[in-house]
Nucleic acid binder design. Structure first.
Length: 873
RNA sequence: GCGGACGUGGUGAAAUGGUAGACACAAGGGACUUAAAAUCCCUUUCGGGUAACCGAGUGUGGGUUCGAGUCCCACCGUCCGCACCA
């Protein structure tokens, strides 16, 4: 028997056995398997060509869950696919002259091989890529259903425009306001685009969050804030000084109608119709708007840009104060997409308004004060002189009929008055905007619509689906190849037959990922879903992915599920019953003396005088050890999982990923950590393979009695089993790993009085089998090899999770801490079921306790059974 | 700018409001070995003390509580998202 565990031969061996046995193919008989279903899904990867450590972490977590649930008797669905459309394929096409299709599919092939080498318990028979016409054709069919259901609309919206490359840029392609390739300042342009009406579902998406009890609280909160339901008012400000129409009024949305008496100006977005109309014969305003348009379209860019305003010369009449008018500005910080694209500003009680007022010398009128400062004129003066607006709760002042009311009551009163005057109304506004899904790109799902001059926009007839992407395209110039393709877009109108034009925009790739989890339940169906299969499997019981998807992807998927429910494809509203967001994988960074990043494999680290010192492996030049950061190509601090798997095996990588760091927190990859994980694989193997002669035969009857050491080992095994099962249930793999170490230490330290006794041999077998079974979901190859070595013919993968003996989980006596005045002074070992009085007496009898009490009268004794005694003296 | 999270030894961390530092990594010492690797054993929060022991300690400052790493308030720092990256 070899004492060394060789992952290189063992891992492929078991992968082959699992595949041949079909262990991970989901039994999906229509009649049901008799087992409860469990659908575990990790966010599917973008096929960049190589897996990275983040993938290893994500898929290891999901795999451990899948294997654990399978062992616990669930019928598990654990599929895999590819989020295969998107910009990187087009960038590769431009840079390397490869076709996006060939590039993507060869990447998928490479990554599939890599993923398989991790030993994932995946049903590969369900695999698909979103760029398969079989998939995106069904997506087009879905879109037509949504169109019919009134969930789709078409309207104008802004894009980033690169005036040199003549192409639309993604936000990430805009760097400091300039195009990433051309370097030219980006402009905003208006295009007519397709939208999904997610905002119609705003309330439903908000309410649904309450039901997602197995989602992280932070994600639910982020979504809630993103949807941003706010109650407020529309206020109509009559406009003066506008030529022409007499009934001109500016409609603003505000969440603070209670501060109307503190209004000092109104402001509209540069894209507000009023601003656009005025700009037509006001060149200065036109220039100002163009200046605003040089900021990108992202909210971040707009909100961090310096606040700029342009006085239109118009004035708005105050709804409450007779004769008072407010100047109307065009301001770059007002978003056209939020509310009505126009605001009234109360600088005293809104920070942005405050900053703007200070910059342009506009009045600051405090109208809300903290409750105890209402009579204090100095408070208002300090506010005006200071740098910060007061946005807290308080009472209204200087506000006529609102005076003395708190914020909530004042809002209500102000709305009532507005409604009575016909100058406004209470309303609910959402921050959530409709989802623009048009992309002016080739490598995406074609939008199945035809534009006809006579008939308008006409859906592609279903019989003609899928609208397949043409292969003969070139990427030698920027812009959308579909648009300049010589023939593809020319079609006959399905309605009138006259020459028409295909829509050349493609879908946002978020559309692809908004329903793939449903498609996995019946990946070959000739309709988007097989409803029966979808109903059987959905919702996903456990979804796992990075926090970076907390809002967009997860919100879109929730919306899409509702839309698919409404169009008859699904019966559920929520796609993911359980969500887990795992942390990132980080690594130290290294730089040479010239500040260039150096990859870890070129760095040698030594310890000199207790300090870690790095030098270059080749040249010996000194290297500076930098901060720990998310693995990224730009900082060269990546570790290739393939190298790790080749060196140590997949189980070591998996074990490392699950050890130490809680899965929802970032983990730092380190060579020492990997070495440590690898050493444990060897240790476990030695433990199992070296124990042969000291084990009871497999299946031997349990002895009637156990010696003290054997009993202690049994306790350790059952306690570890129960705790690890609990940890797996709660995805606390790092704690499960600690249980395994504890049990391993107990086994290693097992020194029975009579090692040849049946009880010792039986207990040792039990402990070894238990540790192997706990390890199974985490290091499946090693566990299988150990399981086989222990004499089992059925693979561990097909073996049920053992049940812990409850009688072995509790100890007879407990150690409890004894505090005096909240300070720990001693501890006490006492019978588990000792009553309160016994515990108190024992605690008071301790020398150290007596010393600490120091003769003072005992006022109170708190006894928490099994935990602590606190004596208050 | 807005929204969200996180912060505990040299390091990763553990701890239903109840003994802070389980478990591991690193480091130091020792055993085994001709030697090395591997393995095994011991020490390891900080300060004082040979020791028993004493004092301090969970980013900072307050608060609630018999008792706070955990709950509340303010601040500091780091990270994530911001609608066309996936």
């Amino acid at each position: 028997m070899s004492t060394r565990y060789n992952a290189r031969t063992v891992e492929p061996k078991w992968q082959k056995i699992w595949e041949e046995r079909g262990d991970f193919l989901t039994r999906d008989l229509a009649g049901g398997s008799g087992k409860p279903k469990y659908y575990v899904l990790e966010m599917f990867p973008y096929p960049s060509g190589r897996i990275h450590m983040g993938h290893v972490r994500n898929y290891t977590i999901g795999d451990a869950i899948a294997r654990f649930r399978r062992a616990r008797g669930y019928n598990v669905l654990h599929p895999m696919g590819w989020d295969a459309f998107g910009m990187p394929a087009e960038n590769a096409a431009m840079e390397k002259s490869v076709h996006p299709k060939g590039w993507t599919y060869s990447n998928i092939a490479a990554m599939r091989t890599q993923l398989k080498s991790i030993g994932l318990a995946i049903d590969w028979s369900r695999e698909f890529a979103t760029c398969d016409p079989e998939y995106y054709g069904q997506e087009q069919a879905l879109f037509l259903d949504l169109l019919e259901a009134g969930i789709v609309t078409r309207r104008k919206s802004m894009v980033n425009w690169d005036p040199v490359d003549n192409t639309v840029l993604a936000n990430e392609q805009v760097i400091d306001g300039c195009g990433w390739r051309s370097g030219a300042p980006v402009e905003r342009r208006e295009l007519t685009q397709w939208f999904l009406k997610i905002s119609d579902f705003a309330d439903d998406l908000l309410d649904g969050l309450e039901t997602l009890t197995r989602w992280p609280e932070k994600v639910r909160l982020m979504q809630k804030n993103w949807i941003g339901r706010s109650e407020g008012a529309r206020v109509f400000f009559p406009i003066e000084g506008m030529r022409g129409e007499a009934d001109n009024r500016l409609e603003v949305f505000t969440t603070r109608p209670d501060t109307l008496f503190g209004a000092s100006f109104c402001a509209v977005s540069p894209h507000h119709p009023l601003a656009q109309a005025l700009a037509k014969d006001n060149p200065a305003l036109h220039d100002f708007i163009r200046k605003c348009d040089r900021i990108g379209t992202s909210e971040e860019a707009i909100e961090t840009a310096e606040k700029m305003g342009f006085d239109t010369g118009l004035t708005a009449r105050h709804p409450f104060i007779e004769g008072k008018t407010l100047p109307v500005y065009v301001a770059n910080f007002v978003l056209m997409e939020y509310g009505t694209g126009a605001i009234f500003a109360c600088p005293a009680h809104d920070q942005r308004d405050f900053d703007f007022a200070k910059k342009y010398g506009l009045p600051i009128i405090p109208v809300v004060t903290p409750k105890d400062r209402a009579e204090d004129p100095a408070w208002g003066a300090a506010l005006i002189a200071g740098t910060e607006a007061f946005t807290g709760d308080g009472v209204a002042v200087n506000s006529e009929f609102l005076n003395g009311l708190d914020v909530t009551a004042a809002k209500r009163a102000a709305i009532g008055k507005l409604e009575a005057l016909g100058l406004g109304e209470g309303t609910i506004n959402y921050r959530l905007r409709d989802w623009g899904i048009s992309r002016q790109r080739y490598w995406g799902c074609p939008i199945p619509v035809i534009h006809c001059e006579a008939c308008g926009t006409v859906p592609v007839p279903r019989a003609q689906l899928p609208v397949v992407l043409p292969d003969d395209v070139t990427f030698d110039q920027p812009g959308n190849p579909l648009d300049r393709h010589p023939t593809w877009k020319n079609v006959a109108c399905p309605e009138c037959g006259s020459p028409a034009r295909r829509e050349t925009d493609t879908f946002d790739t978020f559309v692809d990922s908004s329903w793939y989890f449903a498609r996995f339940t019946a990946p070959a169906a000739t309709t988007p879903t097989d409803k029966e299969a979808a109903d059987r499997w959905l919702p996903v019981d456990q979804y796992i992915g990075g926090v970076e998807h907390a809002i967009l992807h997860l919100l879109y998927a929730r919306f899409f599920t509702r839309a698919m429910h409404r169009t008859g494809h699904l019966s559920v509203d929520e796609p993911f019953a359980g969500l887990f967001t795992q942390g990132m994988v980080n690594h130290e960074t290294y730089r040479d003396e010239d500040g260039r990043w150096v990859p870890p494999e070129e760095v040698v680290i030594e310890t000199v005088d207790g300090k870690r010192v790095a030098k270059h492996a080749g040249t010996g030049a000194p290297i500076r050890i930098g901060s720990i950061e998310k693995m990224s190509k730009s900082k060269k601090n990546t570790i290739d999982p393939e190298d790790i798997i080749a060196k140590y095996g997949a189980d070591t990588a998996r074990w490392f990923m699950l050890s130490d760091s809680p899965p929802d927190r970032d983990v730092q990859w380190s060579d020492q950590g990997a070495e440590g994980a690898w050493r444990f694989t060897q240790r476990l193997w030695r433990m199992v393979s070296g124990a042969r002669g000291q084990l009871a035969p497999g299946g031997a009857a349990m002895p009637a009695a156990f010696g003290e050491e054997a009993m202690a080992l049994r306790r350790a095994a059952h306690q570890a089993l129960a705790a690890a099962g609990d940890d797996f249930d709660n995805l606390r793999f790092n704690r499960a790993v600690a249980r395994v170490y504890e049990l391993a230490n107990a086994i290693a330290g097992f020194a029975p009085a009579n090692p040849e006794g049946d009880d010792a041999k039986w207990a040792l077998r039990e402990a070894l089998e238990t540790i192997v079974q706990i390890v199974g979901p985490m290091m499946p190859h090693l566990a299988e090899e150990c399981w086989e070595t222990l004499g089992h013919e059925t693979p561990l993968t097909a073996t049920e999770w053992p049940v812990a003996d409850k009688a072995l989980l509790v100890e007879d006596s407990v150690t409890i801490a004894v505090q005096v005045n909240g300070k720990r002074r001693d501890e006490l070992t006492i019978a588990r079921d000792a009553d309160r009085e016994t515990v108190e007496r024992a605690a008071l009898a301790l020398d150290k306790v007596e010393k600490a009490i120091d003769g003072k009268p005992v006022r109170k004794i708190i006894v928490v059974p099994g935990k602590i005694v606190n004596i208050v003296a």
